[in-house]
Design a protein around this nucleic acid. Sequence first.
DNA 1: GGAAAATGGGACCTTGAAGTCCGTTCGGCA
DNA 2: TGCCGAACGGACTTCAAGGTCCCATTTTCC
Lengths: 218, 218
Amino acid sequence: MSDEQVAAPTNRRRISQRGIATRERILEAANRLMFVRGVNATTLDDVREASQTSKSQLYHHFADKQELVRALVKYRGALVLQRERGGLERLRSFSGLVRWRNALVQANSLNNGRYGCGLGSMAVELSDQDEQARSMLLETFAAWEKLISDGLHRMRDSGALRQDADPEKLATGLMAALQGGYLLANAAHNVAPMEVALDMALEHIKSYLSEPSGEPTR
Amino acid sequence: MSDEQVAAPTNRRRISQRGIATRERILEAANRLMFVRGVNATTLDDVREASQTSKSQLYHHFADKQELVRALVKYRGALVLQRERGGLERLRSFSGLVRWRNALVQANSLNNGRYGCGLGSMAVELSDQDEQARSMLLETFAAWEKLISDGLHRMRDSGALRQDADPEKLATGLMAALQGGYLLANAAHNVAPMEVALDMALEHIKSYLSEPSGEPTR
DNA sequence: GGAAAATGGGACCTTGAAGTCCGTTCGGCA
DNA sequence: TGCCGAACGGACTTCAAGGTCCCATTTTCC
């Protein structure tokens, strides 16, 4: 029985810089292609061609397509979390949330709403067919939501948000609005629904802001 | 050039009750299987077996898999709209909206949040690979949202909602929350996120309710 | 009742995508 | 500088899934 069940990229086998670069090139190509075509509609030959590698390389770095997809889930998750950390780590005010919203809308509008969220679409495609992928996606969503709820906690601690605001629920609601917005925008080829959805969630959060110069919360 | 490009089930050809029943059986089976496994992960042999038909019957009623899928989009769209009409056609109050919410949550909780929305998941899977399916789904979403916004219009006309409420935007926000909720619930195998998302949207609508015994809106 | 068309069964064909294999080149290291 | 395993190219194999075909049975309509 082999002792390298895990998806870890390196395990016992010596690996060179060149090898790492190839692996990266494969993942990067898979990421691009599967983002626009979907996971199941992308073939390994597509990936091979786009990454300028060969079959033997694909199977050298990944046991099979499922492993490649799982690695992609990790890869995308890391990318998204890194990007989101940039936008949310220092979140301390409502206007910061608005800026965050604008950045997402801006990015999605470049595609006219197409393709949706890299994580959300994988969640839909994979949840019913790969339990391991689903659970990794679930963790990633949790981490993402935590970035939001941490920011909301800071806002509550600083008094910007009222005490009766529930950062976790607000974060979940915001994430659902975001994902639903991506989905509708993708179906419409138009960012507008995503904007409306995010604005709803932001207005909802706004309703928990402390009155700027009113009586204390209770 | 043939004159039956459209997906209409009957066109010139004689069709019997028995034939209709078979077609229905195929669609029903495809609906069930593709709901739990996804469209691309379901094979025609799966459908054939589940529907107790044969290859020749599948191809007698549908030109190819893509046509079957498109027919399924219509089929599901009709089912959902029929169901939703029941819950929304007579919507006139906020409590009606709450009942509607409860029914959806209840239904989804039977699967522990799994599988998501029959329309939403197809939208994600197909939008990037079948333009015609995408546009049918878009129309269906629009009709669904209209059922909601019509209800909100009635509420506004009757004075339950304030004049500054925008039924269309509220309906879009609610739909996004619903779809995002389905997506997160599916990833989590748990309805909870869907409940939180819907509650956010409902609270948002609630904030546009007229004050029961306060000063007029302006 | 009988012709014609619809309905039906299922073997068979084709395709394309996943996965295998083997010989070659590259690069780090003794 | 020569060895060895990683990195590589790409032809080849396998197989499942989509799609075709032909003949049998049933229904419909005159």
